[in-house]
């Protein structure tokens, strides 16, 4: 899968893979992992005033500071949609991002 668009082949993103010992992961655990991930995404996007919410366990609703909404299929296209919603680029190596207080 491509980190740029996330849609080579199927709609699964590589980071959706739940890294646990054993073959099967129960549904409740998948839901909990998904919620955990959304919590982290919201912490990452706080400086950009962008929020993300789950939609039916299938998509992500990305909402910007002006109320603009975007739907993301997977984490693969989340960042592009978050940039559109924020109206500015996201860069994990940007000094401003690195200097921002953790999780605020």
């Amino acid at each position: 899968m491509c980190g740029l668009c996330g849609i080579f082949g199927d709609s699964r993103h590589w980071s959706d893979e739940i890294v646990r010992d054993g073959d099967s992961v129960p549904v409740w655990q998948r839901r909990r992992e998904r919620q955990h991930r959304i919590t982290l995404i919201n912490k990452i996007l706080t400086p950009y005033r962008v929020t993300v919410a789950d939609w039916q366990g299938e998509k992500l609703v990305v909402r910007g500071p002006t109320g603009r909404c975007e739907l993301a299929e997977t984490v693969g296209d989340l960042w592009q949609k978050a940039e559109i919603a924020a109206g500015r680029p996201l860069d994990p190596l940007d000094a401003q991002f690195l200097e921002a207080p953790d999780g605020t």
């Binding site: 980190g3 740029l4 980071s15 990452i44 984490v75 960042w79 680029p89 996201l90 860069d91 994990p92």
Partner: peptide, 26 residues
């Protein structure tokens, strides 16, 4: 894993052209 995956996906999204190779054991 969730935090690592989000970080690497954002790094690949933003700097993929410069990321010639990443390989790791976690």
């Amino acid at each position: 894993w969730a935090a690592f995956g989000l970080w690497l996906s954002l790094l690949a999204y933003k700097h993929g052209a410069a990321l010639l190779r990443v390989k790791g054991i976690l």
